[in-house]
Structures are given as structure tokens and as C-alpha cells.
Design a protein around this nucleic acid. Sequence first.
DNA 1: ACACAAAGTTCGCGTC
DNA 2: GACGCGAACTTTGTGT
Lengths: 83, 83, 83, 83
Amino acid sequence: MSDVAAPIAVEQLRSFVDRIERLEADKAGIADGIKDLYSEAKSLGYDVKILRKVIALRKIKPNERRETEELLEVYLHALGELA
Amino acid sequence: MSDVAAPIAVEQLRSFVDRIERLEADKAGIADGIKDLYSEAKSLGYDVKILRKVIALRKIKPNERRETEELLEVYLHALGELA
Amino acid sequence: MSDVAAPIAVEQLRSFVDRIERLEADKAGIADGIKDLYSEAKSLGYDVKILRKVIALRKIKPNERRETEELLEVYLHALGELA
Amino acid sequence: MSDVAAPIAVEQLRSFVDRIERLEADKAGIADGIKDLYSEAKSLGYDVKILRKVIALRKIKPNERRETEELLEVYLHALGELA
DNA sequence: ACACAAAGTTCGCGTC
DNA sequence: GACGCGAACTTTGTGT
């Protein structure tokens, strides 16, 4: 099974690892930024839990619409099956 | 009742929400970039699962890693497993 | 750190492992039963995707109610903060 | 429109839903039991994380495990990491 | 091989 | 400050 595996071009592999780690570092940095914002909001008297809820709700809304469409499609399909 | 109490806070709250959502969008974008890199690596024949393990191993400190492995071997040995 | 760790009473450890593996086997058996039900339903002409959707929706419903109550509580709290 | 098409199927569908939900409830109960075992082990001083690793390792075949580790070492070695 | 669903892991929160 | 709880993210397995 290993015969057909990648030749492991060392430089190429290293390049992938480096680029991935770089992006993950960026991602972690942004996550820290988000954490800082929540902390700042908290220090100004906001309830972080509420804030997270608001963000979550706004994120879900589009999904909900997609879910609805999907469900509609699914039900139409179901009617097709049963008709 | 909140109409008279929070007119200023509303703008501030909106600002927090906007900034957090912006950062979360950035984070998602970077996550997509990482996914693309893994896909590219896969298409070149690399084993993505192993690649992820490599990244993960490099992230944790060698000390921690050794401690974990040693403890794991203690448990396995106690069970009579071949470590 | 390891000084205070468990003495690794071999028999006790083995007992835990056995009991956990036993329960996981039971769980896997039930999962198989569920799989069989879906297969049976499929063989009778039902769309498995729809079926899964129905199950998922019914599972979410109670959560949704809880979410709503939780959200209400959170908003009341928010008004308390801003008042 | 579906009233005339699926009167029989409805009962059958309900039966499937009920049975599936029953099995899922059983499955959840067993999952709780597993959780309890881990908690109990933890209270006795065992390292839950390691315990989970032990269970996971015993689940996968020794062959697979060795192959994975070997491939992992190939990658790490290619990167000049200490395996 | 892909996409969806399940499991496991981690993190932040509230509690005691 | 340690613990358990719950949510979010990540990873693994499965069905198409």
C-alpha cells in the first residue's frame, strides 16, 4: 500500500506544514482578538453571555432560512414519494 | 422601558457586534484557506490524516508529549498490553 | 506531578476498562439496531434522509423551547443591566 | 393532497420514528453510564484523558496502529523532527 | 471520493 | 480554585 504513496518531497512537505502553521497562527491571533473584544465589552458592563447569544442568533438566521428551504425541498420530495 | 435607558449603549453594542462578526468572518476565511491547503496536499498524494497529526504534534511541547506517552504506556502495561 | 497520581491498582483499572468497553459494545449494538431500522424503512420506500430530518427536528424542539426560555431570561437580565 | 395518498404509511412512519427514538434514548442512557464510569475513575485518581486513549487504542487493530505510527514517523523524519 | 452525521476534544462559564 | 456543565470546534466514521 505504501508503494503508491507520496514520494514525500521533503521541501514540498515542509512548505505545506509551514503554510498551514502560519495560517493557524493567524487564526489563533484573530481568536485572541475576538476574546479581547468580549473582555472589553465586559469591562464596559455588557453581559458577555448575552453578547455571545446575539452573535449566535445572527449567525443562525441565514442557516435557518437555508434549513427551511431544505426542509421544503425534502417535504416536496416526500410527497413525490408518497403520491 | 429600555428605550429611555440604553440609547447610547445601543450604538456601542452594535459596534461590538460588528467588530466581532468581522473578526469571525476573517477567522472563517482563514479556516477555509487551511482546508484548501489540506486538499491540495491530498491531491499531491499526501496523507491528510497523518499531516494533521504532524501539525498537532509540533504544536504540543516535547515534554508534554513524552509525559503523555509515558503515562499511556504505564496504563497499557498495567493492562498487559504490548506498548 | 506523577507522585500524587493513581497507584494504578491493576485489577481496578482492568475493571474500569472492561466495564467501559462493555457499555460501548452495548451502545454500538443499539447503533446497529438504529441502522437496521433505517435500512428497513428504506426498503419499504421511505426516504432515509427525510426520516433522519424528522427525528432531528423532534429532538431539537424541546431544546428550542429551552432556548427560548433561556433567551427570555437573558433579555430580562439585560434590561436589568441597562436600567 | 397527501390525505388520500399516505394514510397507511403514516402509521408505519410513526412506528419507525417511535422505535428509532426509543433506541436513541437507550443509546443516550448508555452514554451516560459511560460518562459516570469515567467520572468514578477520575475521582479515584485515574487520568481520564489517558483512559480514553487506552480504550481507543484497544479498539483499533494492532496492524493499523503500527502502520499509522510508521507513516507518522516517515513524515516527522522528513521534516527533521525527532520521532 | 464526497458529504453528512457522530464522537471526541477544548474552552469558557457558573458553582461550590 | 477546582469541578462539572454546556457550547464550539475539530476530527473520525459511514452511506451514497
